[in-house]
Design a protein around this nucleic acid. Structure first.
Length: 539
RNA sequence: GCGCCCGUAGCUCAGUUGGAUAGAGCGCUAGACUUCGAAUCUAGAGGUCACGAGUUCGAUUCUUGUCGGGCGCGCCA
């Protein structure tokens, strides 16, 4: 068991011995920032002070008397009542053998208890090429999915295809226009037609496959289905290149055909009312700021009803949790969808919507403006050609989804310590070359003699990895992994600078250090893998 | 007008059941290679946590007001 978990367990026992009842989750133990505060610290005594009506320092003393001290060099009461734990070096080094033994599995946990989670992300309309906004959502969704499965959830990655709206008719007409133009006919694009190169390319593909077969009469069914199919093929190719895969593609048309819409109209009937000839859903009773129209006065549905149906469909597929990764312009959507699921009887925590904020591209210190009107936006492909898939993915997940992201193109493309991706990858490559240099010496997994500050800090950080992954899963926060990676890289480089690893004059220390190097390499590789970023052996 | 998010170092950002001297990276300044990769390391400067009031042993964190920024608000998707 990890030291942290052991400490928490002991504190939990101590707390109950004092007549209070705290679960392990409620006990906060942190790695000390300041060396003078030992290795780990807890504010437990301060937490309990109010309910016990005693001074924190007195409570701290009582807690310490309950703690098994075999693990620790010393335990101190500090400041207003913090308890600082100084761990014996031997307790710290046991993690090396554990990491080397578990290898690629190190970092896994079972906090998810095998619960089924559906992560829906990207879900771009099949009417154009993936661009910058999709790229951030794709990276976030993919990494969240990876983290969740690491933490013991069963994860389904899903892409929702909006293939039923007016935009599809528009797509079909746009493709037909380009198709006809390629035969020299003067057919104009529709009013709000799609002007992208992808439409031209698809038209030519159809020409190649079917010749002039569809030229004389516009066949909406054919051009719709071909358009959607070919756009999706391109989207999937882009995602594949970006190392993002999906398990399920669900089409809106399929949802509409299942009769779910009727089922929902019946189930939600108690929450519906008529006004001005339209049907409203009483979402305001469940936390939304106003009621929403669900059936328009002309008898057709708003988009809201099929969306509810889609969420019901996901929930019915036996997913305990649903996660949607959506763009910032959808934030008004959160409450109404949660309200609808509550009406259908699902628990409050069923749906989590992660809102992904906008990305600004920065080049030469200036924002790179792009015009939507002329269609000159940066595509996912172009971005990756500029900075590489590794940097793109890393930068997109390095900040919390809810904050705006400034993507510095120069930094992402640079090969220096200023670029966090290179910094981390370089650390990994360095570790690999150390192992190569010392491969005849072999490992000493006991960690005998590893007692410098650099080594101890590295060990502590390695030990915290599984908890970090579990925390990132719980908070759906990939940036915690990038922060972890940065710190691990820093500790690795410091260790490298201070500690001579391969030393023929001191074989036993070398063997212990090589084992530590291997453990660090494994964890750094695992963490980068979680981000979908490559961990090169040399660069 | 209503609603949501936000305001922390020069820049980009962490800091979630309220806890020790508010952190990280970049940038800046000064140092460090005859030995495992200097694509690196070490040290330093840099803060009225937008502002005011309240809650309490203690507030960046909770409440409230003001100022400033972003977004959403159609029987659009």
């Amino acid at each position: 068991m990890e030291i942290l978990a052991l400490i928490k367990q002991q504190l939990s026992h101590a707390a109950s011995a004092l007549g209070t009842n705290l679960s392990i989750e409620e006990i906060v133990v942190e790695q000390s920032k300041d060396k003078a505060h030992g290795d780990y610290a807890t504010n437990l005594a301060l937490q309990l002070a109010r309910s016990l009506g005693q001074s924190p320092r007195v409570i701290a003393a009582k807690i310490i008397s309950q703690v098994e001290s075999a693990l620790f060099e010393k335990i101190e009461i500090a400041g207003p009542g913090f308890i600082n734990f100084f761990v014996k070096p031997t307790a710290l080094t046991s993690v090396i053998a554990k990491i080397v033994d578990e290898g690629a599995d190190y970092g896994s946990s079972d906090v998810g208890h095998g619960c089924s989670v559906n992560v829906e992300f990207v879900s771009a309309n099949p009417t154009g090429t993936l661009h910058l906004g999709h790229a951030r959502g794709a990276a976030l969704g993919d990494v969240i999915a990876r983290i969740l499965s690491r933490a013991g959830y069963r994860v389904t990655r899903e892409f929702y295809v909006n293939d039923a709206g007016a935009q599809i008719e528009n797509l079909a007409q746009s493709i037909y226009a380009r198709y006809a133009q390629s035969f020299g006919r003067a057919v104009d694009l529709p009013q709000d037609g799609y002007h992208g190169q992808d439409i031209v390319d698809i038209a030519l593909e159809i020409k190649t496959a079917h010749g002039d077969q569809y030229l004389d009469r516009y066949d909406p069914v054919f051009f719709k289905s071909e358009g959607i199919r070919r756009e999706l093929t391109r989207i999937r190719a882009d995602l594949d290149f970006y190392r993002v895969q999906f398990d399920v593609f669900t089409h809106e048309t399929a949802i509409r055909e299942q009769g779910l819409l009727e089922e929902i109209k019946i189930k939600l009937a108690p929450f519906m009312y008529e006004q001005d000839g339209a049907t409203f859903l009483k979402t305001s009773a469940f936390g939304d700021d106003k009621d929403r129209v669900i059936v328009k006065s002309d008898g057709t549905f708003t988009y809201f009803l099929p969306d509810i149906a889609y969420h019901l469909d996901k929930a019915k597929r036996d997913h305990r949790y649903l996660i949607d990764i959506l763009g910032a312009d959808h934030h008004g959507y959160i409450n109404r969808m949660k309200a609808a699921l509550s009406m259908l009887g699902y628990p409050e925590d069923t749906l989590t919507i992660e809102i992904v904020q906008m990305v600004r591209l920065i080049k030469d210190g200036q924002e790179l403006k792009m015009s939507k009107r002329t269609g000159v936006g940066v595509t996912l492909r172009e971005l990756c050609q500029d900075v590489g898939v590794d940097a793109a993915r890393y930068f997109f997940v390095a900040r919390s989804a809810s904050s705006h992201l400034d993507f510095d193109l120069d930094l992402a493309a640079s090969a220096s310590s200023a670029n966090p991706v290179y910094y981390a990858q370089y650390a990994h490559a360095r570790l690999c070359s150390l192992l190569k240099a010392g491969q005849e010496l072999g490992f000493d997994l006991t960690g005998q003699g590893l007692d410098s500050d650099e080594e101890k800090q590295l060990l502590r950080h390695l030990e915290s990895y599984p908890l970090e992954v579990a925390d990132a899963a719980k908070t759906k926060a990939p940036y915690k992994i990038t922060n972890y990676v940065q710190k691990l890289a820093t500790l690795t480089h410091s260790f490298y600078t201070i500690c001579r690893v391969v030393d023929k004059e001191n074989i036993s220390l070398s063997r212990a250090r090589l084992a530590l190097v291997d453990a660090s390499r494994i964890v750094l590789g695992n963490a980068l893998g979680l981000l979908g970023v490559s961990a090169p052996e040399k660069m």
